[in-house]
Design a protein around this nucleic acid. Structure first.
Length: 694
DNA sequence: AAAAAAT
């Protein structure tokens, strides 16, 4: 089913477009011809993947195979996953040409990796074996391989020599194309970037000798702001702390320059280390892998997403991306690692596990990326992260290149940045902690008992109520393949229940939460992404980082108690410059978020319901007069604020009267979607708001 | 009376 015929290999074009970067920053060679985006090309040019590739080749790029993946993938992920795990079986590894790759990876002197005689220069660890203690190894390596402690320097002397001896080791060379894999990798992609928006977004880059940002992508449709700024910084081998809220194309922003450096410099000592490891142990199944770049991510799905992106950027290169995370068979992941691992994407827990099992060594990890760093700290990963970065064999800061991405920049992140980064550039895209103006945010008053019927109305809505028309950029589109709707609930149980409900109401929907098996989680995401189930009911597991194109509407069926969580959730829409809509159901259970929500709305220049303003004022008033009891600061007197002056255009109270649940029939939406009928009656006052004190 | 993440 994933074998879809591609008539516009857009994703590949994106990758190729990225290659044009080099000319943009002055290093590009090639023919000097400008990359032509798909929509400006001759219509009669055959639009197949092969052609797209030759176009890229024609325009030349020196970044090397930034595309590329190893033509060893069998492209066999027919359903994405087999038995719930990635089916990344290789067929002869890198053997697009030359002899079939030795299935034992690096252990032989033949195959594409081999050919080069084993030289003392590459055996600086020669006497080492895995029996040796870590500390001994750590002490040795400085003397043993001088030169690898140049930033980004893969001990250039050795590397050059390697290249001289074997052209096969030139990582800047492309290997053969593979159409099937191209289709697999590049079939889905983002479209419809709203370029006009980019000029409005404030960007700040501060630090010593900050490299100038890229001025233009020559009109190609990949105008990610973060990329324009982050790529030159990373390519200049600078450490980076990037704060970017939503839709920022972060993954490409770090993968592209990091892989480009790896392609230019080759695998260096990491390759030799892996070979030694293989030789020392001899047997299949005992090799330790030494990734050159490591990406840490908070959730499994995000790790997987980054990995998938990595595969695209590794297309036709010798670089092999791998991913490890919990919930999946570790044996399978180990076998994948043993086939070679140069770019590793991981969740922290599983990576620590892998390190302790001796499957991964970070000794040659010259690039470290922490994605969604604030989220990882929130989730309590700091010990694991410090264990990985500081208490093992990873090169120290200043030697490795480190990039941190975070939506916010609170104290804990600042400390982490201080500890992990050296003389870093601080890049803020959009205002830190704010939301994108691409997203229209609506807050509606909906009692718990009315939420379901209100949701159905929302899903059926096709008209924009006149009183809010000027504020709504687009109507809530009906869920469909091109218009995905993401519904957030607060609890796993709630997710199950709501999915059931929607399913029985006849909606194609699915759900995701942390109690699902990893296989189910991935399958749900796949169904949603592909549009087969255009409605996804989710818990916080899907709130951060996931980049799903075509999410047009985010609905906070339950508002989170934490404003950061809110910001992340709505950030699932309005991505890459697209417009999006976020609707949140608010009632007295949410009074703890009132003030922060108000601030966010004001900051993003959104319409603020007057009742919310009053509520925030009262809440604040109460807090200051009665002291800050975070747990019980809300819940009393809220009713007054829902008695908004009837008919005010600013009133966003639900038009559902006291407990009445009758929804409008079959899409005949009452025309008062963001109704203002005022609050109609009784509500059950539950008193407290935030039981777990967040 | 929560979610997430190694087992």
């Amino acid at each position: 089913m994933s074998h879809v015929v591609i008539d516009n290999p857009h994703g590949l074009d994106q990758q190729l477009a990225a290659l044009d970067l080099n000319s943009a920053d002055g290093q590009g060679g090639g023919t000097g011809r400008r990359y032509i985006p798909p929509h400006l090309r001759n219509k009669d040019a055959p639009k197949n993947a092969g052609n797209a590739y030759s176009a890229g080749r024609q325009y030349g790029y020196s970044v090397a195979p930034v595309n590329l993946y190893s033509p060893g993938w069998d492209g066999g992920r027919s359903n994405g996953f087999v038995n719930g795990y990635h089916d990344n079986r290789t067929n002869g590894g890198f053997g697009g040409r030359g002899p079939p790759r030795n299935d034992r990876g690096f252990s032989g002197g033949e195959g594409n990796w081999g050919g080069a005689p084993r030289d003392a220069a590459y055996n600086s660890f020669g006497g080492r074996n895995d029996q040796r203690s870590k500390s001994t190894f750590f002490n040795e390596r400085g003397a043993g391989s001088r030169g690898r402690y140049e930033r980004g320097g893969f001990s250039s002397g050795g590397n050059n020599r390697w290249s001289e001896e074997s052209r096969e080791e030139d990582w800047s060379k492309l290997s053969a194309p593979n159409e099937r894999l191209e289709n697999e990798l590049f079939s889905a992609s983002n479209t419809g970037i709203n370029f006009e928006k980019y000029d409005d977004i404030p960007v700040d880059a501060t630090g010593n000798n900050c490299p100038p940002h890229i001025e233009s992508f020559h009109d190609v449709d990949m105008g990610e702001i973060v990329m324009k700024h982050a790529i030159p910084i990373i390519k200049s081998k600078r450490d980076l702390m990037a704060c970017a809220q939503t839709g920022s194309g972060k993954t490409a922003a770090f993968l592209l320059p990091v892989l480009s450096q790896i392609y230019q410099e080759g695998p260096g000592d990491a390759l030799q280390a892996a070979k030694s490891s293989g030789q020392d142990n001899g047997r299949y199944g005992r090799r330790k892998q030494y990734p050159i770049a490591l990406v840490l991510a908070p959730t499994r799905e995000l790790a997987l997403q980054i990995y998938d992106e990595g595969r695209k950027f590794a297309y036709r290169s010798r670089l092999r991306p791998c991913v490890v995370y919990g919930g999946a068979d570790i044996g399978q992941q180990i076998r994948e690692l043993e086939r070679g691992c140069h770019l590793l994407v991981a969740t922290p827990g599983r990576l620590v596990d892998m390190m302790e099992r001796g499957k991964i060594g970070l000794d040659y990890c010259n690039f470290l990326i922490l994605d969604e760093a604030d989220r990882m700290l929130d989730m309590g990963f700091e010990p694991q992260i410090r264990r990985i970065v500081e208490q093992d064999t990873m090169p120290p800061k200043g030697i490795r290149q480190t990039m941190m991405f975070s939506a916010t920049f609170p104290k804990e992140i600042q400390i982490l940045a201080r500890d992990f980064l050296e003389d870093y550039i601080f890049l803020a895209v959009g205002r830190v902690g704010s939301t994108s103006e691409n997203i229209t945010q609506k807050v509606v008053w909906v009692e718990d008992g009315d939420k379901r019927s209100f949701l159905l109305d929302l899903l059926n809505a096709t008209v924009i109520p006149s009183e809010v028309q000027e504020n709504v950029t687009e109507a809530p589109e009906k869920p469909g393949k091109e218009s995905l709707t993401l519904v957030f609930v607060e609890t796993k149980k709630g997710a199950d229940a709501l999915e059931d409900f929607l399913y029985h109401e006849g909606y194609a929907c699915t759900s995701i939460h942390g109690d699902r098996s990893q296989r189910d989680r991935e399958e749900a995401l796949h169904q949603f992404r592909s549009g087969r189930c255009p409605i996804l009911v989710a818990t916080a597991v899907a709130a951060r980082g996931l980049d799903i194109s075509n999410v047009k509407h985010v609905i906070n069926f339950d508002l989170p108690s934490d404003i950061e969580e809110y910001v992340h959730r709505i950030g699932r829409t309005g991505r890459v410059g697209n417009l999006g809509l976020a609707t949140s159901f608010f009632n007295d259970k949410n009074s703890n978020i009132t003030k922060d929500l108000l601030d966010i709305l004001v900051e993003a220049k959104q319409e603020v319901p007057s009742w919310l303003e009053s509520l925030a004022y009262e809440h604040q008033h109460k807090s200051t007069t009665r002291g800050r009891s975070k747990r019980f600061s809300g819940g009393f007197g809220a009713r007054d604020y829902r008695q908004t002056p009837g008919g005010s255009a600013n009133s966003f109270s639900s038009n559902r009267g006291g407990g009445g649940g009758g929804r409008s029939a079959g899409g005949s939406f009452g025309g008062n979607f963001y109704g203002n009928d005022g609050y109609g009656g009784n509500y059950s006052h539950s008193g407290s708001v935030d039981w777990w004190g967040n």
